[in-house]
Design a protein around this nucleic acid. Structure first.
Lengths: 338, 338
DNA sequence: GCTGGCACTCGTATGCGCCGAGTGCCAGGC
DNA sequence: GCCTGGCACTCGGCGCATACGAGTGCCAGC
């Protein structure tokens, strides 16, 4: 176990390094933080911290920088979440309040997060898993062609074109529409399959094929759309770390384009609370020198999706966590209202 | 007027520079292209080309690189569009054929373009301006709350929530839905306003307020959605030019996030044919060291939107133009089919 | 008008020495 | 036992001087 002072030293190292982006030495540390001891003592502590793997030297005779393990300890034990100030809160709320539809909410959220944290923001579209059906609409486009439109309580709309096995009359369609809605409207997506299971039975034999086709398309839509979409913003912020970069920036941009990768990372933990993945804790290699701060958000009590930021491991964790948490909270409110 | 050989020299310089990314000298030129003259002669030609502003030296005693003006001449007079090979065409078609809906078409197109050109791809969603209405759906969500769903012939779906001034019955709604569709289905967006102008007159006095509200929301949707959306991909390709870097890449990333800027650039020319904007020809400052190759695409004969790529002015114009043109053609086909 | 030759320019690469921040270790003191 | 001041050592970065070579412009000759 590390002594209290050594933890303080680690905290000071993280803070200084995050601020200056340069390896921090024992002398500078004692000057900037009143630790009440001399540089020599700090040096001993640093040697100990290095032995334990919390910090490292880029090269002999340079200052120390935190390792992933060091950041981890910092985040877990040494730092809180820095709350937003009043004006910041108001700004967030005002900015999000202007949104006109779901796309706009997501777009504004991304922009806001990127601006607040000055990092890359990632916002997952509200997931359908926990959503409920607001309405299912069926439109006849041609005798044997039907368009299915699914509207969710989060305001999302999905459409699918369906080629029917047999012509399907307007009246049958209206009938199906009515029955379908009376069963599934207001219900959760996960419950839909069993709710519509016996629906074809109520129809004439000739129409059953089409009804089944429509239903299976509906179920497919529910499943497919769980493969969520994302919106990303603030990639220009990556260039702020032009030092280390060209090398690091490329895999990050690639990872960001591979939405599958990001979705997997975001979805890895079921915990709707704040998650911080530091450096190599990210399974994806291209993101080994970045940290991801994410949190669930949703209308009402339940988390329906995640949002977060991707930045260098050397980031301002308390501030970033504060911004992410605050934004998630306000987005949840907006979604609940609409 | 430049002599034929001088134009050949310019062409050779552009080709070599694009290939090697390094200033090209007279000796290297004569070695790689059989111009039939000695380096000394080429030097004279180069001096002339430099006087005319087609090429420049980064510093005294280095090779020459083309200027924006040089690229312009190259594109206009010296280079054709390099057609895609048979296998490439097939690959494009196969890749795009797998798309399941409009979002997917656009997403695949972006990915494809980025891959083919190894640059940043930009695809505008099919515009509503020239589109026609496939169907307008009205759903009653609450007594005084209606959802408007607009479906276009390109498969795009837009929805709007409407708060009605007065409760609106199911029958009135069905009536409105029927009348609305009989008037606008299959018609162009631009024609819609006058087609629905006198629609409220056919309704009871008490319903007219609501009908007007619905109609104005519909018209708004048409207008608003002309402010088009874009999809962007391949930003990781920007890192291929790590030379000039941090300086150039940042403003480009910023420009790419400002969709408004891009839309304006894409929309600047009405010409649906291929447009190449080179370096400073782009009004937006951040893109002064990039070129944009864009072309209109659409289902049937008419262009409904644009797509293109953004890359360094030092790009393979013939190849890029070929890829852009080919992709636009196939996307048009896909859209026409669906 | 093309060519070979030649002197010149200048940016890049290389080697060297200095400087200073930072370290580890040790002996002495509280 | 822990902290402290002192000290020798390390090593990366920076400035400078030098060498190299690619490329140029110009000129005289064919």
């Amino acid at each position: 176990m590390l002594s209290e002072r050594r933890l303080q030293v680690l905290r000071a190292i993280v803070q200084d390094y995050v601020g200056t982006e340069e390896p921090v030495g024992s002398k500078a540390l004692t000057e900037r933080h009143n630790l009440g001891v001399s540089p020599a003592t700090v040096r001993n502590d640093m040697a100990a911290l290095e032995d334990e793997g919390y910090i490292a030297q880029p090269h002999t005779s340079a200052g120390r920088i935190p390792t992933d393990k060091g950041y981890r300890l910092f985040v877990d034990k040494l730092a809180g979440v820095k709350p937003m100030t009043g004006p910041e809160r108001r700004a967030i709320q005002n900015f999000l309040d202007g949104a006109v539809d779901l796309d706009d909410v997501v777009a504004r959220t991304v922009r806001l997060l990127a601006q607040l944290t000055r990092q890359v923001a990632v916002v997952q579209y509200p997931s359908l898993t926990r959503s409920t059906v607001r309405h299912v609409e069926l439109l006849s486009l041609a005798p044997a062609r039907v368009m299915l439109v699914l509207i969710t309580d989060t305001g999302r709309v999905e459409q699918r074109m369906i080629d029917c096995p047999a012509p399907f009359g307007e009246t049958s369609l209206a009938d199906l529409r009515a029955r379908l809605n009376s069963r599934v409207a207001g219900r959760r997506f996960t419950d839909v399959p069993q709710l519509v299971e016996d629906l074809p039975e109520g129809f004439d034999l000739e129409d059953r094929g089409t009804v089944s086709t429509v239903l299976s398309t509906l179920l497919e839509t529910l499943v497919e759309e769980n493969e969520e979409r994302l919106m990303i913003g603030g990639t220009a912020n990556l260039t702020r770390f032009a030092h280390d970069f060209p090398l690091t920036i490329r895999p990050v941009l690639e990872a960001l384009e591979e939405q599958v990768v990001l979705l997997k990372l975001l979805g890895e933990t079921q915990d709707p609370g704040m998650t911080v993945r530091i450096g190599h804790e990210n399974a994806y290699e291209g993101l080994n020198s970045t940290s991801i701060v994410s949190v669930g958000y949703g209308s009402g009590g339940e988390a329906v999706a995640k949002l977060g930021v991707v930045g260098p491991t050397r980031m301002d964790y308390p501030g970033t966590m504060g911004a992410v948490r605050a934004v998630a909270r306000y987005v949840g409110q907006i979604l609940a209202e609409s």
